[in-house]
Simulated scan of single mutants.
Amino acid sequence: MEAAAPKILILYASYGEGHVQAARAIMDSLQRIGSCEVQLLDLMAESHPWLNNLTKFVYMQSFKTIPQLYGWVYNITRGMQAKSAFGSVLHSFGMRQLALTLDKEKPDLVIHTFPQLALPVLRRKLGMKLPIANVVTDFDLHGRWLHPDIDRYYVATEDIQQEAAQRGIPIERIVATGIPIHASFYPMSMSVEEAAKPQHTIPQPISGTTTLLIMAGAYGVLSGMLDICQRLSQLPQLRLLIVCGRNQQLKAELDALYAGHPDIYTYGFVDYVPALMRASHVVITKPGGITLSESIASDLPILVFKPVPGQELNNALYLEQKGAALIARTTEELIQHCINLVSTPSLAAEMKQSIELLRKPHPADQIARDILHQLVDKTPSIWTN
């Protein structure tokens, strides 16, 4: 009799789009490679809906209005221990809902793409032998991700792998796969149906013209967008693709300003970011881990504008140190970076060389194969329980 396909539960949170995008990328790979049965669960939303809405609101507002305070809290807790009083409180949310889900679904393995780690304590309480994996979705390592009872870690880089080991995680449990993104960022992985999809209103390349992709984030909160676009629109031989996310007001204002402009294209919330990136030469973006990973996969030099203190600033600083990104803290600095990249091809070429060193092939597939290798092939297991 053929063995049943593994059943896997992926826990995420909807603070921004990154955690759910990572969860969906892993789900797609597990289903495609291993025919797994995969369930996604927004644990905080299901277990504490009122508190989830409140904390999401506070999270978004802190980015907009009190970023320095958010960054201070992030950095002062970056070295937290999972079993400290603070860590125990953070990881206690959702335990009852999670117990009900485990009893109903009986998964073979649980994956976190957000560091809400109620499961290790629950597993001990229930005496379960249930493997747990964490997928870290930034180029920075906050202590919330680290727990001695997590069986496997998938991280963005070898640097994070080494840092996690230095902070007490056995290095054999940590794999530098890269951050999981959708398979469509790798054209060879696209299905015939995906490849045949219309390219919407994405312009074709023009010789001598640099295409600049501006990503305002899922909620369109990139600071100073109207001023940035106005300044960039005055530069010669530059075409702008502007993604406003769910910020309908921003898109409407840009449409009113640039209706009929031959070199400015505006978009709302789109599901064809891979095609937009393939049509571009440079990207301006918020430094979320997923978008940065998508840009790296697309071989795009990265300009980061006014990164918010916390994981986004730390992401940006890491990529800047590696030579893959440039940080601009003022509009004037951003415009100058754009001028330099357009006028000095060697600068963009150097950044692309740095990007190549960071690129990981098919992170979601790597994660899926590693998990399936242990669960299905019955080789000596990485799982400690």
Score class of each variant (00 low, 15 high):
E158M: 09
G168K: 03
L303V: 15
W145I: 07
A99P: 10
Q353A: 12
V121C: 12
V270K: 11
L254M: 01
D365V: 06
S88I: 07
T331V: 08
E193D: 09
F93R: 08
S293P: 05
V89S: 11
Q39H: 10
L122G: 07
K125I: 14
A316I: 06
L226Y: 04
Q248E: 11
T65Y: 15
I371A: 02
P205H: 12
H91P: 09
D151T: 02
R359L: 06
V58L: 15
G260R: 08
P236D: 09
I174R: 01
I174V: 13
F185S: 00
L357Q: 14
K7Q: 07
A195C: 03
Y74C: 04
S298D: 04
F63D: 03
L54C: 13
F185W: 00
E350K: 13
M128N: 04
V58A: 15
Y265A: 05
G217P: 11
D299V: 07
Y219R: 13
L11M: 11
V342D: 08
A259N: 13
L126V: 07
D299N: 13
L100Y: 14
S62D: 02
D42K: 09
H362D: 05
R167T: 00
S47E: 13
I111Q: 00
P180R: 03
V20I: 10
K129E: 13
A196G: 03
W50M: 08
M95C: 10
I10Q: 06
I202S: 12
Q81Y: 05
S346Q: 12
I150K: 03
G79M: 06
S191N: 05
P107E: 11
Q39W: 11
L69G: 06
V342I: 12
S298H: 04
T285Q: 07
I296E: 07
W145F: 14
D42L: 04
A4L: 11
E193G: 02
P180T: 07
K251S: 05
Y154T: 08
D140A: 15
Q81R: 10
A156C: 12
A164Y: 04
S88R: 14
P309L: 04
S233V: 10
A195G: 05
S189I: 02
T379G: 14
M80H: 10
L43E: 02
